[in-house]
Computed example of a mutant assay.
Amino acid sequence: MTKILVIAEHLDGKLNPSTARAVSAAAAVKPEAIDVLVLADNADAIAAEAAKIEGVTRVLTANRTENAHALAAVLAPQVAKAAAGYSHVFAPSTTFGKDLGPRVAALLGVPQVSDVMTVEGSHTFKRPVYAGNAIVTVEADPALPVVATIRTASWPAAAIGANSAPVEALGLDVALPSHTRFVELKQGKSDRPDLQSASKVVSGGRGVGSKENFEIIYKFADRIGAAVGASRAAVDAGYVPNEMQVGQTGKIIAPELYMAIGISGAIQHLTGIKDAGTIVAINKDAEAPIFEVADIGLVGDLFKIIPELESAL
């Protein structure tokens, strides 16, 4: 019997869109049931959101004060306990899932399947290797539970609002470790769309020239209602904070529109945008690798082209 447990990612009482993408991957397995597990100190509002995701059979909640903050060391024993009777445990391949998944796999004594891009069968998956330059087919042992992280950029979000799954509270009798504790969370606050779920993203690279010059990227992104990203070169140069980095060692995204401004297009950056719908590149170097993947390319000075685009808008 194929039953999948999807671990919900949430923050500040709201469900992350990555959860609905993980549900899409779960549906591709064609299981008999897809249950979503919400671990929080007050899971009611989050569970209500999860219950509306199309394809979800049940929403299970684990309310504990220790779950107020997403600490993988604290959540993993609860997930491993809740996973009894399930053939698969899925989590989004975000910072949250990459931290939690390996711990759950270790507790269950199974290897993890990482960054699932496509489902070929109940225990057969495709995932990227070598910075996305190759795709491998992985077969998991059907005799063991499958613990997998889902590459969210490769999956559409399951529809929300078309379902009304029942919500059930779980009583998980499990001892939690005390060697890890929450101190504080430091995160950037922005009124712009979330980088990982935005439909439009404008990214700047080393070609922007400085932290001060990056204002032209922010201004243009705000004009078209886009999230703002950056290449690793821009992050390393101190133009922007590292949570804005797009690429192999940053965020893997799949917006409908991606604008790469002053970005040369190193393979590590291209790995992060390979699933984007339309890629627009602006660079003064006509030989920049970014033009090899761009649907639309503009060769020229970004400080002249961006104001021209704003005037056209």
Rank of each mutant, 00 (worst) to 15 (best):
A281V: 08
L108C: 08
A169Q: 13
V299E: 12
V147R: 08
K219Y: 11
G265H: 12
R103K: 15
G229E: 03
R151H: 07
V167P: 09
V280K: 01
V202H: 00
T19H: 04
S190Q: 00
E308S: 02
A134Y: 09
A294P: 13
V119G: 07
A158N: 02
V110K: 02
A84V: 15
A281H: 09
I135D: 12
D44K: 03
V208D: 08
Q112H: 08
P92T: 00
R223D: 12
L75A: 14
T118A: 09
R223A: 14
V183Q: 07
Q268P: 14
F291H: 12
P142T: 04
K274H: 05
I261F: 05
K274S: 11
E120W: 06
A25E: 11
L5H: 12
I217N: 00
R127V: 10
A286N: 15
A254M: 11
A40L: 15
E310C: 09
S18K: 01
T61A: 14
Q245I: 10
A153N: 05
A276V: 09
K304C: 10
A143N: 10
I263S: 09
P241R: 02
G300I: 15
V79D: 07
R127L: 12
T65R: 15
F291N: 10
E310P: 09
Q248E: 13
G13C: 00
D99N: 13
K284A: 12
Y218E: 15
V167M: 06
S18M: 00
G171L: 05
A73R: 08
V228S: 03
L5F: 13
V183F: 08
V174M: 12
Y130K: 14
